[in-house]
Every structure is written in C-alpha cells, then in structure tokens.
Design a protein around this nucleic acid. Structure first.
Length: 890
RNA sequence: GGGCGUUUAGCUCAGCUGGGAGAGCGCUACCCUUACAAGGUAGAUGUCGGGGGUUCGAUCCCCUCAACGCCCACCA
C-alpha cells in the first residue's frame, strides 16, 4: 500500500519545474508533430525580444498566453510550432555598446571605426544576448528552439535585401530630401512613431520684423526665436485684411538682416498669435509644407549634434537653448523684441535618447506605404485578419488609413546596411540596389561605395513572419515548412505595438505573399502594479517574474496571469492574488495526496457508464460541461473564463463535494464500489490534470507521472479532454443540486445555534416531491456523513412539524432540527423573519411581473414559463417560512 | 483638437446577443474533522458614476453630464 506520507504536505515547485522543462526540451516535445485526424497546423510567432532586453512582467504575460494556446492546440492534436526569435534592436544595442566601450576605454565608435565597432557589438550580443532566452525557459515556454531566428542572421539579411530591392525596383522605396525627425544625441533620423510628444513649459516670444522700404513693422509670435536665422518668408492668411497690402513685399529678418518675401498661405490662422507666421521650412513640418507650396528656400541652421551652424552666424556653435537666450538678447539690443509670455506646448522627444527632436531636412530613404497600408486595411475589413478584442481595429485603422512616408534610413552602424551602391566614377554616377554585393559598377566597372546608412529595425521586424520560415531561401522554406506554417494562426501582443509591428508585418507580408501573415491578432493587457500604475524602475514598483516564480512557483504565476486575461486593457497585478492561486495549485496537490493511496484500487478497465453511481454521474456530467466551456473560452482568447471554470469545478465541485462524498466508500468494505470509485476519481483527476496542463504545465506533468500507465507518453502530448454526449446526466445534476442545498441548510442551522462540529444531531425533512424524497432516502448515508446527522426522517408537508426545533426552508424542502436543549427562540424567530422578508421581496418582484398584462403579452413564452416556475419556488419557500413562524409564535 | 477606454461589494476585476447582481483577495463567527490552517464550515456587504430616453423589463441599448486613464495630432 502506497502511503501518502511520501508526498509532502505542501507542493514544492522547486526542482520540479526545471526537471520537466529539461525532459520536454530534450525529448523534443516542442517540435511539431504530425497532426491527428487531419487537424490544421497551428503556429505562433514569438514577439522577438530586444537583444538588450531583460525579462519583465510583459514577457511573462505574453508568453504565458502564447504557451497556453500552443500547449492547448498541441494536445488537441494539431501540428504545432511556436517560433522564437530575437531582435537586433538597432538603436538600443548600439547605444549600449557605445556606452560600454566609452566606460571601459574612453573610446568612441569613431575611434574604433565601423568594422571594429561592429565586432564589439557582435561580441556583446554573444555574451549577453542569450540571457533573456534562458529566462524564457523558466516561464515554461514550449517553443521550438531549432526555429530560433535572430533578425541579423543570414536569412533575415537575405530577406531584407530581397524586399528592399523589390521595392526599389517598383520605386516604392526612394531617396528624398524631406523633413524628418532628427535625434541630435543619436545623430540619426528617427521615424514619426519613435517620437513622443510631451508638454513642456516654454514661452511665446513676440518679435518685430521690419518691412522693407516702409516704416511698418510686423509683430510675430514664435516659441522658437532661434530659428529666425532659417526664415524664408513671412506668411499671412490671404483673407486677412490687416496684412493684405503687404503681400508681395519684402520683410527683413532681424539680426541677420536678410530679405524675405511676405506671402499668403491658407495654413495661417488669423485668430492665432498675431496672424503673421515666420516660415522656417528647414526646421518645422508645417513650414516645410508651406515652403514647398510657395517654392521657398530651405535653410538648414543646425549641425548634426543640434548646435547652430554657419547659417546662424550670430549664435554659431551654441546649443538651441543657448542660442535662444542669445537671440533674445540680440533682439533686445536692436529693439526688435516685444515681449515674452509663458506658454505650455508640445515638444517632440526621442523615445530612445529622450533628446528633444529637431525637425530637419535631410536626404533619407523612404517607403511609399500608400498601397500597402490600404491593402492592410482591406484585409481586416474582410476579416482575413481578425482582432480580438474587436475594438482594436479602430486603433489599427487610425494608423493605416492615414499613411505617411515611412523613413527607413538610420545613421547608425548596427543594423542591416542599405543595399544601395553608388559608382565612384563621377562621370558614370550610377546608383543601384542589389541583393548581392557587387564586384564593381555594372555600368562602367569602376569601384563603388555602399550607402553607409542602415535600415530601421522595424524594416526587418516587419519581415519576421517570413524569414523565420526561411524566406527567401527556397530550400530553407522547405526545411522549415513554410507552406504549412504560413500564415501563422494568431499574433499575441500588447496594444502599444499595433502600429510599430502588427501594421508593418501586415504590409510587408501581404506585399510579398498576397496573404495576411496571421489570421488573428489577440491584443492582451498591460501589466501594471496593484494600483494601476505602470511599472518602472524609478518608481520601484517593478515585479520581477523570476522573483515571483521563486516565491510561488511558475504555475501559480501563470495561472494568475491567465485568469486575469480576457478582453481587458490592464492587469493590476496584486502579489496577494498570486498567493491565492498558489493556494489553488496546492489544493490540487493535496487532492492528489488524498487519492494517491486509493489509486491502486483503480484498474485498467475503467468503468462502464451503466454501472455508475449517481454521484459519479453527477461529477462526470459537471466535468463534461467544464470541458466544453473551457475549450470554447480558449478558442476566443477568454483565458479568464477558461481558468475560472476550471478553478470553480476543481475547488467547489470536485474537492468540496466529490472527494468528501467518496471518503465513506473508499474506507468501506465494499470492494466493487471502492474499485469503481477509484476508477472514477482517477478518470476525473486525469481529465483535470489535462485541462489544466496548458496553464499550469509543471505540476500537472508531475502529477501525470504518478497517474499515467507505464507505457503512456508525457502529459504534454496527451489528448485534450473532449465533450462526451454519453456523459450528460441532467437529472443527476438537478438532484445533486438539491442534495447540496439541504446539506448546506443543515450546516447553516448547526452554525446558528453553535452546535459543535463533532456533535451528532437529528434532522427532519418535509417535502411533497416524492421522487426527491426517495432520492434523499437513498442518500441518507451521505447526509449523515456530511452533516453529522445520526437520525432523520423524511415526511410530506401534511405532517405536523416538531415543536421544539429550528428550521430552514428551501424552495423544495423544509429542513428541521429538533432541539432538546435551550434555544433562544427570539433570536431564531428574528432570523426567520429576516429570511421571510427577503423571500417576500423577491417573490413580490416576480409576482408583479406576472400580474403585468403587458409582460404576459409581450415577453417570449420561454421567459414567461421560467418566471412562473420561479414564482412557484418562491411561493413554496415563503409559505414554508410563514407556517413555521406561526408555529413558533403560537 | 480628434479618437478610444474606464466608472459594478473594502480592494482588484468578470458580467457574452437586455429577463432573478458574480469571482478572487480581504472581513465576521465557529472549528487543528483522519488530502490540504497555503485548510474546513457557515456568513455579511452593492442607490451596478449622475440624469434622461427606448422597452412589458436596462448593469447591458440610445442621449446627456461628471470623474479618471490612454492613444493620436504641426497649431505658430
């Protein structure tokens, strides 16, 4: 006889988790396996973490949800693969390595040169890049590591070049002088999406511009007086009577005394400021547009580091901030300064360096996304790709319906270098894009130079769905089963990346394959602290997944994250919640501890449905419903519903009732029943363990190792439970509900008069439902056991009730506890009265409904029938209570 | 300025296409009952943000107000 003393009282995840991860990984269980019964392949891409990344709660959530889906589908028999990867993260990584070499040797990247510097970056990647991947294994990620793709690997590099050249040929990629966001710290262009607008305290400065050949002056308001050196015009609204006579004249820029035209442009709002606008096409997005419309000169007044250049001689070499101060001073000196007023306004900051972004005109590479964006919208409109929750469509549309040219060149070294080559011969001047590194200029055989810039990281991330499956290398595509796994089944990610990543993958993948890259997109919540504040180092409210795993076990953390995930936007994660679900995990462990010694009674034959005891039918029927509900919930990404259903079933049904009801049988001498019950317990528990495995993989695999037959495979590839019509036992469920109700009523009564738990009592039931009376009679043994009853009687309601007693009424049965001892009758009557009031209130509510002719006329028949049945129940209950009250008071 | 979202028990949140208000944690009382004190049994708690409307019937649909949060936007 196996003794449950062998199993510790509390579940200790320590050791168990690593043991099973190793077993799965080494046993190649994460690799795709041929599907069963023609089920469709199922694949998910891991959002590739930055190579500089560190594991945080966002990963824990994202990976838990993906892993739930993958494990669920794998068990269902789909051929399944979760494809991991990692992003080279151009700016972040370069910045990190630059910092490192500066700290260690005081050198800058320019001291090393491009080639040496890149070597340093690769070294850094080799040393630190793997950390986060090792951390992922602690989460239980069941991804196929053989599919691992780093975005700077050879295949992604080929993909980038191929796509670039394709777009270049179609002239959808082009080089242009255009106003872009310049990060003076990184000294690179950045895309619109990488700019955050923050409100800062600034000033409005009012200045005077003289009009040439006139003594008139124009007062102009600006927040950036230092840009006056780049002014190309003064613009007024063409309909503005105040300035109409000046249009076409010249104004003189203060300090540098240049002459600029006064022009009319509709963009100028007469109501705002002074109605006159200084136009600086080189350093303002609107002014750039005005400049283009009016053919104005573009004057660049900034150096790459953000200081003023020779075009702003008076303030040359100063930073923008210093230049602003100096310019104001100079304006005051020449008496062209009017006033300064405090003003809050939005200023663009670089997401990466946090520097103030300077709009600047510069030669950059762009993608025309007009067509691709509109195709990506159509695909969602036609449900080729579906958002869950659906509401996120709007966010997606808001980006994709107003596409702007995407600036893809970055003045960095770490990244995919732009595959464009320039002939060194001035006479030839050929410019071309090529997937292969050329030998010489194809036109004149001269030497050539490659464009020094690299591509925006998102350019390669956008190709992730393709290059992870080998594209464009045909052999690799075969090997990695491109045709089987593309498009992937679902993309699971957070909302903040819809534009950066989801939209770009949609555009590039559709462009290349004419198919959407994934069929669904599930947008999950953002993990915040328990007060709803975003976790950040500076606030000190960061929870580290590895700490949580250490404290409560990975399964508990996973369950908590999954049960918190549905169609919500935020998860306010309270550590006490994890503790609660850790207790649940422990509960399962102990349910097993209880069963363990009895398992050897179970035999391989299992059980016949026809032999089942009514409690067994009940639990199987309940389990069956749970299986149905859980499966349906996961299919639509309602992890919260799925987890709650299982939790509820395991805790409230299986543990609190079925196990309790089984104790008597298991300790009895009835061998046949013992075997049968052991079989059913084992069956149910195996199903529970399977149901839970996607969410809590470690403890379930551990339990499975004790439950499985010797030649059974690991749980990770066992078949997921399926709904069985032969396990539907509705009447057993209904009877059981009533049984539980009367047991609870007895316990409630015991409690109200403080009968000791060990003390056995007498009980009487009064019901007019003959079949229910019969059911209770058959269950008398269980009633005695669960409610500590030593004797009882079941009578119909015509029989007189015991005088000295307390009672509780249900809609079907009156439960009486005859009492010999002293009872404070008044207290009890008060309680009963309260119960009566409550019941009366509910009954009246329903009765009024039935009395309402409009309701009877308009409500659907099934609703009326339901309400009638309810009314009957309340009426019965009410009359039971009323009768008792009369008796007690008499 | 535009858009999205939130407002339900002390806290964190769920309530699907309208038909008797739920969960977890916390709280109260009684219990070391032979799986589990990370436990058991029983229990208390809500003008479902305010106001209006549609409907036989509204937490759910419509309008409006309020508070809070987020995203986007070049307003000098």
């Amino acid at each position: 006889m196996t003794n449950h003393e062998e199993l510790p009282k509390t579940y200790d995840p320590n050791g168990v988790e690593d043991k099973w991860y190793k077993a799965w990984d080494e046993g190649k269980y994460f690799k795709p396996r041929p599907s069963k019964n023609g089920k469709k392949p199922y694949s998910i891409l891991m959002p590739p973490p930055n190579v500089t990344g560190k594991l945080h709660m966002g990963h824990a959530l994202n990976h838990t949800l993906i892993d739930v889906l993958i494990r669920f589908k794998r068990m269902q028999g789909h051929e399944t693969v979760w494809i991991p990867g990692q992003d080279h993260a151009g700016i972040a990584t370069q910045a990190k390595v630059e910092q490192k070499i500066f700290q260690e040797g005081g050198k800058t990247k320019h001291d090393l040169g491009r080639e040496e510097f890149l070597k340093e970056v690769w070294n850094w990647k080799e040393e630190y890049g793997g950390h986060i991947l090792e951390q992922f294994k602690k989460l239980g990620d069941s991804c196929d590591w053989d599919y691992f793709t780093f975005t700077m690997d050879e295949t992604p590099n080929k993909a980038v070049k191929k796509f670039f050249c394709m777009m270049f040929e179609e002239e959808l990629i082009y080089q242009s002088d255009y106003i872009i966001n310049w990060d003076p710290v990184l000294q690179s262009a950045i895309s619109d999406a990488e700019v955050d607008h923050k409100e800062v305290d600034g000033n409005f400065y009012n200045l005077h511009y003289r009009v040439k050949d006139s003594n008139q002056v124009l007062e102009i308001a600006t927040t950036r007086p230092e840009t006056l050196y780049g002014d190309s015009a003064i613009a007024v609204n063409p309909n503005d009577d105040r300035f109409e006579h000046l249009i076409g004249k010249l104004a003189i820029v203060p300090i540098c005394n240049r002459e600029i035209p006064i022009i009319a442009d509709m963009h100028v709002d007469m109501e705002v400021g002074t109605g006159c606008l200084k136009v600086t096409p080189g350093h303002d997005f609107n002014d750039y547009e005005i400049g283009k419309r009016n053919n104005l000169e573009i004057i660049n007044i900034l150096n790459k580091d953000g200081t003023l250049n020779e075009n702003a001689q008076a303030v040359q070499g100063l930073t923008a901030k210093e230049a602003r101060k100096k310019t104001v001073q100079l304006l005051k000196e020449c008496e062209q300064f009017v006033k300064m007023e405090p003003h809050k306004h939005q200023v663009g900051h670089s997401q990466r360096s946090h520097a103030i972004v300077e709009p600047m005109v510069s030669k950059q590479w762009f993608i025309n996304t007009d067509k691709m964006a509109s195709d990506s919208v159509t695909a969602v409109e036609k449900d080729e790709m579906k958002f869950f929750p659906k509401g996120w469509e709007n966010t997606y549309y808001s980006y994709q319906k107003n596409p702007r040219p995407w600036c893809i060149s970055r003045q960095l070294w770490w990244g995919h270098q732009i595959p464009v080559y320039y002939c060194d011969s001035e006479a030839c001047g050929h410019t071309w894009a090529s997937e292969e590194t050329p030998e010489s200029c194809p036109k004149c055989t001269s030497s050539f130079t490659q464009d020094p810039d690299v591509l925006d990281t998102w350019f390669s991330s956008g190709l992730f769905p393709l290059n992870t499956l080998g594209w464009p290398d045909e052999e690799k595509m075969k090997e990695l089963q491109f045709d089987k796994f593309y498009p992937s089944s679902v993309l699971v990610t957070a909302f903040d990346i819809i534009f950066f990543w989801v939209a770009r993958m949609m555009m590039t993948s559709q462009k290349i394959t004419n198919k959407v890259p994934f069929q669904d997109t599930y947008i999950h919540a953002i993990v915040r602290d328990k007060d709803g504040v975003k976790m950040s180092k500076s606030l000190g409210n960061v929870l580290d997944p590895l700490d949580l795993i250490k404290e409560s076990g990975c399964d508990s953390m996973r369950f908590t994250l999954a049960v918190s995930s549905g169609y919500n936007r935020n998860i306010n994660l309270d550590p006490s919640k994890i503790e609660g679900y850790r207790n649940f995990v422990n509960k399962i462990w102990n349910a097993f501890r209880f069963m363990y010694p009895h398992l050897e009674n179970a035999n391989d034959k299992g059980f016949e449905v026809s032999d089942l005891h009514h409690h067994e039918k009940w639990i199987l029927s309940e389990l069956n419903e749970v299986i149905k509900d859980v499966t349906a919930a996961i299919e639509i990404y309602r992890f919260d519903d799925a987890c709650n259903k299982i939790y509820q079933f395991v805790y409230e049904k299986f543990c609190s009732w079925f196990i309790e009801l089984s104790k008597g049988i298991l300790n009895s001498e009835n061998e046949a029943m013992k075997i049968q019950r052991a079989n059913v317990l084992k069956y149910c528990f195996k199903e529970i363990v399977k149901l839970l495995h996607p969410v809590t993989p470690f403890i379930t695999e551990e339990l499975w190792s004790h439950l499985k037959n010797e030649d059974d495979e690991l749980l990770i590839i066992q078949e997921y439970p399926v709904y069985k019509t032969e396990h539907v036992f509705t009447s057993d469920q209904e009877n059981m509900e009533k049984f539980m109700e009367v047991i609870t009523a007895i316990r409630n009564l015991r409690n109200t008069v403080q009968i000791k738990p060990k003390e056995e009592i007498e009980v009487r039931f009064y019901t007019d439902d003959q079949s229910l009376a019969k059911y209770f009679f058959q269950s008398r043994g269980f009633i005695k056991e669960l409610a500590r009853v030593n004797s009882g009687k079941i009578k119909d309601k015509s029989v007189e009730r015991p005088a000295k007693s307390i009672m509780k009424a249900t809609s079907h049965t009156e439960v009486f506890l005859p009492l010999e001892g002293v009872v404070d009758l008044q207290v009890f009557i008060g309680k009963l009265q309260k119960d009566k009031e409550k019941t009366q209130k509910e009954f009246s509510k329903i009765e009024n409904k039935l009395k309402n002719p409009k309701f009877m006329k308009n409500a659907p028949d099934d609703v009326v029938a339901k309400v009638k049945a309810e009314a009957k129940e309340f009426e019965d209950k009410l009359s039971s209570i009323t009768n008792s009250l009369e008796n007690f008071q008499a």
